[in-house]
């Protein structure tokens, strides 16, 4: 080791150079705008495609969209959906879900059920705050799901648009499932290619 190098080392030790050097990043950040934000006092903007809590939707005329077809149940990879259906006594030929459960503790938020639904009755919302002391309340039943759907209707619709499921009804209908006569009357007019 030569003299110059030795002197430099002693000097650095006397001035605590290494500590200053190490703290450089810290000091730099003292003058940065903070990137963290104060949840829950501050809320983040969530993108439309966000996969949050599931909700069930109604048509504008108030009818339940869900026809109890069990396809979401079949699509669900974690098997957390259970649908029990029956014929609607007031509307012959109409099928509806008498009971509908989603065990949200098991849900992996894959969105497959939404994709499977032929009538876009299911949608994901931006709601993600459902922590609780009682795990049992995390078994969402039909009423709860419709409540979520109602409360977050706008978000749910945005979700469907974002996933290209309802953006342009006419166009998307052409390759998506078109629901026939039995549900037709209470819902939409038939798409162009079928009318």
């Amino acid at each position: 080791m030569n003299v110059g190098a030795l002197t430099k080392k002693v000097l650095q030790a006397a001035l605590f150079y290494e500590i200053w050097d190490a703290m450089k990043v810290t000091f730099q950040h003292m003058f940065h705008r903070p990137i963290t934000f104060q949840y829950p006092r501050e809320q983040r903007t969530i993108p439309d495609a966000h996969r949050g809590a599931l909700g069930l939707l109604r048509y504008d005329d108030g009818h339940e969209r869900c026809v109890g077809c069990d396809l979401c149940e079949a699509a669900c990879p974690s098997r957390c959906i259970k649908v029990i259906s029956a014929e609607d006594p007031s509307r012959p030929l109409q099928r509806y879900a008498t009971e509908f459960y989603i065990d949200i503790t098991k849900c992996v938020f894959c969105g497959y059920c939404v994709e499977a639904c032929p009538v876009n009755a299911l949608a994901m919302t931006k709601m993600y705050e459902f922590s609780t002391h009682d795990k049992r309340t995390l078994l969402f039943d039909k009423k709860r799901l419709y409540d979520i759907g109602e409360r977050h209707l706008d978000d749910a619709k945005k979700y469907l648009y974002a996933h290209n499921q309802e953006k342009n009804v006419e166009e998307s209908r052409e390759y998506r499932y078109y629901f026939p006569q039995s549900v037709l009357k209470s819902t939409q007019s038939p798409p162009k290619h079928l009318s």
């Binding site: 077809c69 396809l71 109409q94 026939p180 039995s182």
Partner: peptide
Amino acid sequence: HPLDCPVCDAD
């Protein structure tokens, strides 16, 4: 065909 597979029992 009505193609109402989602409500049809044969689905």
